[in-house]
Structure formats: C-alpha cells, structure tokens
Simulated scan of single mutants.
Amino acid sequence: MLRTIQAIEDKLMCDCLVRRYLPPRTADDLPGEEPTYLACDFWLADAYALASRWKD
C-alpha cells in the first residue's frame, strides 16, 4: 500500500489533487488533459489515514 501511495503522489498528483489517469493518456479517449477527480482525492486521504499519515 505504501508503494502505491508513493506512485500516486509521484505520477498522478497535480497541485495537491489526484488525477484518474496519467496525462495526456485517458482510458475513455477524451480529447485534451483530464482534470483532477474528487473521488481519487478521498481515496488518497483514506489511504493516508490507514498508513497513519495524519498530517498528509
């Protein structure tokens, strides 16, 4: 889980928010770059809590 959190922080975070896909590649073939996705932010916050990273 800790490596998954690190990978998300390294590759999917943008201005402290989380994207669903690596830019500019999207699974749904929408044009342009996809914005951040709120559900992913809550998932990451939950993962931080489970990892006892309360300040993050």
Rank of each mutant, 00 (worst) to 15 (best):
A27M: 15
W43V: 13
P24D: 09
M13I: 06
L38H: 13
L50D: 12
R53G: 07
F42R: 05
L50Y: 06
D46N: 09
E34M: 10
W54S: 08
L17M: 07
D29K: 03
E9G: 00
L38W: 12
A49S: 02
R25F: 13
P35T: 11
T26W: 07
D46T: 11
P24T: 15
Y37A: 04
C16Q: 10
E9C: 02
P35D: 07
A27L: 11
A51R: 03
D28E: 03
D29W: 01
E34A: 07
Q6G: 07
I5L: 15
I8Y: 13
L2V: 03
D29I: 02
A51M: 05
Y21Q: 10
A45H: 13
Y21V: 00
E33L: 00
D15T: 06
D10T: 13
Y21L: 07
P31E: 04
C14Q: 03
M13F: 07
Q6R: 06
Y37R: 01
C14G: 01
S52R: 11
L38Q: 06
L30E: 06
A47G: 02
E34G: 01
L50W: 11
M13Q: 08
L44R: 01
I5N: 09
D41P: 01
M1A: 15
R19Y: 03
I8K: 14
K55N: 04
I5Y: 12
K55H: 15
D56K: 05
C40G: 09
E33A: 01
Y21P: 01
D15H: 10
T36D: 11
D56F: 08
L50P: 09
L30Q: 04
R25I: 15
W43R: 14
I5T: 06
L30W: 02
T4Y: 15
E9Q: 05
E33H: 00
T4G: 05
F42S: 15
L38Y: 06
S52D: 07
W54V: 10
R3E: 14
C40Y: 04
C40V: 02
L12I: 02
R19K: 11
P23K: 04
S52V: 05
L12V: 01
A27T: 11
F42C: 12
D15M: 05
A7W: 13
R53M: 14
D15V: 04
G32R: 02
D28S: 14
T36E: 05
A51Q: 06
P35F: 12
D46E: 04
R53Q: 11
P35W: 06
Y37E: 03
D28F: 14
